[in-house]
Design a binder for these strands. Structure first.
Lengths: 154, 154
DNA sequence: GTCTAATGTAACTACAATGGTTTCACGATA
DNA sequence: TATCGTGAAACCATTGTAGTTACATTAGAC
């Protein structure tokens, strides 16, 4: 499995909110840029709102940023939209056999590794702000990229 | 979402294979230590076999390790069981609007960050071998852990 | 005050991945 | 030959995601 697209969509949304004139970035407009349904956008702005990153009120067109993009790290966005569920990035197999030497210790032995692996990933996200991503977009604008739509490879 | 339990189950399985007398670690026996169904174990040993980590043949009880645990990194196991699917750890929202300045660049701007975040996580897994986990289990054995079954917290 | 537009939210659907289960053919060995 | 174990297919329940419809509520324009 992979991490929810809510995360990149939320970043996309925040950038649109920052570069749009107040009141113009409606969920309809954002949805057409993201290429999804307006309700999906509202769900995400709702989560961003509960995390204190934006302020959106019923009836008022367009959400408002509560912080400049330079003060919003990707990690904050990732956590705001609950990009990885409860229990962390790695799942563990529940209730292994306590009568087996391996079964009764495997979780305690692996948990620290899972935690540090997840933390290493999140630290990268913490080092980048949404403003950095927006800056990259400015730089990219007008430049032809040969592998523009290339999927993430490992 | 989170990473498949196939990963910890595969590590569990490899450790059992290494400490068991040849021919005794059947999928039934492993399943009872993991607390799952034997077919689930066979699915995983099949993937480990295709990755060259174990050798399992129909009719012969118990798979055989093809490498000592000290030469198997957690990253190899993680890749063997396809712990994160195709396209990488992070999903991207497909086909954003190419007529929007943000839409047509968001993927190119975020991909490098996604790749390095994923790589940071995988590097942690690469630094640990299955033998390290088995060693931790030996050390833990007999020691009472207060939060033994504590879930991963973030 | 009324109308329009936009949001928040609930409910439903389709889809994919996971993990559990049953079943059966086939190989190995006593 | 009988038994045991594996490989593989098929099926199912559960879960998370994303898309969609529908509707109540609110703000602002007229």
């Amino acid at each position: 499995m992979n991490i929810s697209t809510r995360f990149p969509v939320a970043v996309h949304t925040l950038i649109l909110l920052s570069i749009s004139q107040p009141g113009t970035a409606t969920s309809d407009m954002i949805a057409s840029s993201v290429n999804t349904n307006p309700v999906v956008i509202r769900r995400i702005t709702g989560m961003l709102g509960r995390a204190g990153l934006v302020e959106a009120r019923a009836g008022i067109a367009g959400a408002r940023l509560k912080k400049p993009l330079a003060e919003i790290t990707l990690l904050e966005v990732y956590k705001a939209v609950n990009a990885v569920g409860e229990g962390g990035l790695f799942a563990v197999h529940e209730s292994p056999n306590p009568n087996c030497e391996v079964g009764r210790n495997i979780q305690a032995a692996m948990n620290p590794i899972f935690i540090s692996a997840q933390r290493a990933m999140e630290q990268i996200l913490e080092q980048t702000t949404v403003a950095d991503v927006a800056g990259d977009i400015s730089q990219l604008e007008g430049i032809v990229l040969p592998d523009f739509f290339a999927p993430i490879s490992r």
